[in-house]
Amino acid sequence: MQVTWGNVTVTFSNPEEAKKYAEKVARKLGGQVELHNGQFRIK
């Protein structure tokens, strides 16, 4: 499962870890987490 924002992509084998990481990054950037085609995207 991947977490992407800007031109950065981070890949996780565990979807739960990916979700936690995406939420943490979104909080830092003041963005929203979207699940899109099996990727968490931060907008």
Results as ranks from 00 to 15, higher is better:
residue 39 Q to S: 11
residue 12 F to S: 00
residue 39 Q to Y: 07
residue 17 E to Q: 12
residue 4 T to W: 06
residue 3 V to P: 00
residue 32 Q to F: 14
residue 32 Q to A: 09
residue 39 Q to I: 14
residue 16 E to H: 11
residue 21 Y to R: 01
residue 15 P to C: 15
residue 18 A to K: 00
residue 32 Q to D: 06
residue 23 E to T: 08
residue 24 K to E: 13
residue 43 K to N: 10
residue 24 K to Q: 12
residue 42 I to D: 01
residue 14 N to R: 09
residue 42 I to S: 01
residue 30 G to A: 05
residue 7 N to V: 08
residue 11 T to N: 10
residue 41 R to I: 15
residue 3 V to L: 03
residue 32 Q to Y: 15
residue 11 T to C: 15
residue 20 K to H: 10
residue 28 K to I: 15
residue 31 G to H: 06
residue 40 F to I: 09
residue 17 E to F: 09
residue 14 N to L: 07
residue 19 K to P: 00
residue 23 E to L: 11
residue 34 E to W: 07
residue 37 N to C: 15
residue 13 S to N: 12
residue 32 Q to R: 13
residue 23 E to S: 07
residue 1 M to G: 06
residue 13 S to P: 10
residue 1 M to H: 13
residue 42 I to K: 01
residue 10 V to C: 15
residue 20 K to M: 12
residue 8 V to W: 12
residue 26 A to V: 04
residue 27 R to T: 08
residue 27 R to S: 08
residue 25 V to W: 11
residue 29 L to W: 09
residue 20 K to W: 11
residue 26 A to W: 03
residue 22 A to S: 03
residue 4 T to Q: 09
residue 13 S to K: 13
residue 30 G to E: 04
residue 18 A to N: 00
residue 15 P to K: 13
residue 27 R to Y: 08
residue 4 T to E: 04
residue 6 G to A: 07
residue 43 K to C: 15
residue 40 F to E: 01
residue 20 K to S: 10
residue 1 M to R: 10
residue 6 G to N: 08
residue 40 F to P: 01
residue 37 N to D: 11
residue 42 I to R: 01
residue 37 N to K: 07
residue 29 L to G: 03
residue 17 E to T: 12
residue 7 N to C: 15
residue 7 N to D: 10
residue 19 K to Y: 14
residue 3 V to E: 00
residue 22 A to R: 01
residue 5 W to V: 11
residue 5 W to L: 07
residue 10 V to D: 01
residue 33 V to L: 07
residue 15 P to R: 12
residue 4 T to A: 09
residue 15 P to F: 15
residue 5 W to N: 03
residue 13 S to H: 10
residue 28 K to F: 14
residue 2 Q to P: 04
residue 15 P to N: 08
residue 24 K to L: 13
residue 41 R to V: 15
residue 11 T to Y: 14
residue 33 V to Y: 06
residue 41 R to G: 03
residue 8 V to I: 14
residue 32 Q to K: 13
residue 9 T to P: 01
residue 34 E to C: 14
residue 2 Q to T: 14
residue 33 V to E: 00
residue 7 N to H: 10
residue 31 G to E: 04
residue 33 V to W: 07
residue 10 V to A: 06
residue 22 A to E: 00
residue 36 H to E: 12
residue 3 V to F: 06
residue 40 F to M: 05
residue 42 I to P: 02
residue 27 R to H: 09
residue 38 G to C: 13
residue 8 V to Q: 08
residue 16 E to G: 09
residue 19 K to H: 08
residue 23 E to I: 11
residue 4 T to P: 01
residue 14 N to K: 08
residue 9 T to I: 11
residue 8 V to N: 09
residue 27 R to P: 01
residue 2 Q to G: 07
residue 24 K to A: 14
residue 4 T to S: 13
residue 9 T to D: 02
residue 20 K to F: 08
residue 43 K to V: 15
residue 34 E to L: 07
residue 39 Q to A: 12
residue 37 N to P: 04
residue 41 R to M: 14
residue 15 P to Q: 11
residue 20 K to P: 02
residue 28 K to E: 11
residue 25 V to S: 02
residue 6 G to P: 02
residue 2 Q to W: 06
residue 10 V to Y: 11
residue 27 R to A: 12
residue 18 A to Y: 02
residue 42 I to Q: 01
residue 16 E to I: 13
residue 29 L to A: 05
residue 13 S to E: 11
residue 30 G to W: 05
residue 31 G to R: 05
residue 33 V to H: 02
residue 21 Y to S: 01
residue 17 E to A: 13
residue 8 V to F: 12
residue 20 K to G: 07
residue 13 S to Q: 11
residue 28 K to H: 13
residue 25 V to N: 01
residue 4 T to H: 09
residue 29 L to H: 06
residue 17 E to K: 11
residue 1 M to T: 15
residue 35 L to I: 13
residue 41 R to D: 03
